[in-house]
Structure formats: C-alpha cells, structure tokens
Design a protein around this nucleic acid. Sequence first.
DNA 1: GTCTATATGTGGATAGAC
DNA 2: GTCTATCCACATATAGAC
Lengths: 205, 205
Amino acid sequence: MTLAPRRPGTPRGRDAVRKGGRTRAAILVAAEKVFSEGGYRAASVASIAEAAGVSQQGLLYHFPSKEALLLNLLAERDRPADDADATGLAVLDELSSQFSSSMQAPELLRLLTIIVSEALAEDHPAHLYVRNRSADVHADLVERLGRGVADGQIRPDADLDIDVVLIRALINGLSVEWLFNQDFDAVAAFDRFLRLLRDGLQPPQ
Amino acid sequence: MTLAPRRPGTPRGRDAVRKGGRTRAAILVAAEKVFSEGGYRAASVASIAEAAGVSQQGLLYHFPSKEALLLNLLAERDRPADDADATGLAVLDELSSQFSSSMQAPELLRLLTIIVSEALAEDHPAHLYVRNRSADVHADLVERLGRGVADGQIRPDADLDIDVVLIRALINGLSVEWLFNQDFDAVAAFDRFLRLLRDGLQPPQ
DNA sequence: GTCTATATGTGGATAGAC
DNA sequence: GTCTATCCACATATAGAC
C-alpha cells in the first residue's frame, strides 16, 4: 500500500515497517512456531520458510543463517517483564502472576523451555544466551528479595541464593511438566510452593 | 579368551557375556556418552560407533536403528532404585539421598535430563517412554507418601498430587541448573526444599 | 527482495563380502 | 560378527537471475 517510490535498502519511516517489514515479521512468527515444536536442531530452515510463505532463500536474505534467526528470535521475544519491580516478599506474588501469564503464550513458553535444556550443550547457538539470561534473572531476584531483609520482612539468616535457585528451577521444571501434560494446575502447584517458601522466609514471630 | 567353540547366535552361559557380549556393552557405554552430550538428535550413529571402536555397520548389527539403540540404553540404565521402599515422611529423606546419588553419575544424569525435554516432541523416540516413566514415578511417590496420612504423620488435607509434582519438577529443574553450572550445592538446595515441604506436610500440633 | 539452481556436507540405513 | 561400499534423503548455505 505504499504509493511513494522507495529505494531498496532504505529504512522506511512508517509504523508498519518500523521493525523490519512484513516478511521479516512473518518469518519470526513462523520460526517461533517451528522452533517451539522440537527446538533448534529438529527444525529446518526450509520448514520455517514454508510456514512463513517464502522460499528458503527468501528467508536467508533477512537472516543470514539459522543460528542468527534463533538469536534474533530470542532477543525479540524473550523480553524481560518491564513491570517487574516488586521488592521483598511481594516478589513472590509478582512471580506467581508472571508464571500465570507465561502460560497464556504456550508456544513461547515451549520455545524457551526446550531451548534451555537443548542449550546445555556448549556448542549450541543459544548456550551463552541462556547462561547470561539465567544469571541476570538470578541476580535481579536476589537483589529485589534482599530488600525485604533490610526492612525486617525477611529473616536475616535467609539464604536467598539458594531460594532463588529453587524458584528458577521450579519454574523450569513445572513448565516441562505442564507442557507434557496439561491436565494439572501448574499455577496452583507454583502457588503452593510460594506459600511454603514464604513461611520459610518470614522471621520467627 | 573363550577357547571352546561356539555357534554364532547361541546364547552364551558365562558371566562376562550374560547380557549380550563385549561389543554390545561397549556400544552402550559409548551411546551413553554421546547421547548425554546433546541428546538424541545431535548424536550420530557414526560418532557412537567410533567411540565404541566399531564401524557404523558393526553397531547396526547389534541395534537395528538409532532409535532402538536409545530405547535399549534407557531400558538398561534408567533402572528404578530397587531399595525405594520408604513410606510417609521418610520418603523425603530417601529422595534426598537418591538425588545425591544421581549426581555421582553426571553422565547418566545429563542423558536422562536432556532426554526429558527433548522428548516433549510427540515424534521423539522416547516420548512415550518418558511419559510412562513419569507417571509411574508419580504414582509410586503419591502412594508411599500417602501411607503417612493413614498413620497421622502427614496432615489429612494434604494434596499429595500437587506436592509430588513439585518434587519431580524440582528434581528436573535443579538437575538442569546444576548441569549448567556446577558451582552451587544442588543437594543443599533440594534439602532446603524438602524441609519447607516437611513443615507444610506435618499436622498442626 | 525474492526467486531458481546448485554446491557441499552429513545423516541413517541396506547389500553383500569375508 | 564385523567389515567396505553404496544409496538416498535431507540439511545449510551460496551464486546469480529477475
């Protein structure tokens, strides 16, 4: 629908194309779908191209390699929640609602969950990405929970590093379990854990 | 070293070969190693054969396909602990020591952990295996914990299905975390969780 | 920007000799 | 039981036309 002429390669100044154009967006949608089915290795560039409605080489014009496609996809979809700013025990409530939200986008959840385990291999294209992402999330949670120690909401002898590992491990493990078998209430299970943890964090009265 | 003649295909009656011969055993050892690195899909039959010291076709004489190799490996290595017979809250202590033991065999732990997520895909050769194995473990834990309800050790309103999901999800999640980064004490983290859970299971005094 | 054609590699599995 | 030789499907990526 663009009537004015435009030189190839020129960045276009309209909303619809602000992030790189229709085709590129369609490829990312297709990549999310196909990568989420069986991870990076099981997916082929051709199948993603087909799902996006372009040829394989049309795809490779926008992303120079399969690896670059995955990394761009992660950078674009795996955004940290920008409203994650609770501190102290309120972090636990925030985690509950974030977990609940993540299950409203099962395809993205499945993509991220599968990639984490697949990326255990050091030669996996997302190995460093997952490692850094985990470390960032960990440090952020420890820091924000830690502010609850300062104001006496959390007992001073709490080992927040261990508890944050528990939180992150459980989110990952429950996601796997839920992706395998959706007839249990993963949010209720997570909330059960958060109650147990809260009881363990509160100072003795 | 077998001096007596032996017809091909005849089952041999000696200890060293009770389970199928040296070559077969060497192939299973190699398969455990290679599959544990990056899962089923990333492994090639040729690389397993090379690690076992046979040709690819020598391997395929013993296992008719890559898929059969994985399934045989799982059937042979993923044995349930035969001394898992605790009941009530003692199940939690048993789980702690089982988890600790599993980390003494990091290669097997890595194999099993990676396969679980990889097998989320319905066309994965181990999909049904993992599904059934999880269900069996789940039912067994619920049953043995449940006997603690009968004798008043565990509060009668406990939701053991949810708590067993937490246990299994956490074991998987902590395994992933530990395989990524071995400089934290995964057993201490698991024990911390088990203490929280125990406090939540005990009847109000 | 998107395509056809193709280079190049690697995978799993079969046939048949020894 | 183990090997060599080979087949065939499929994968990623490049070259170049339009």
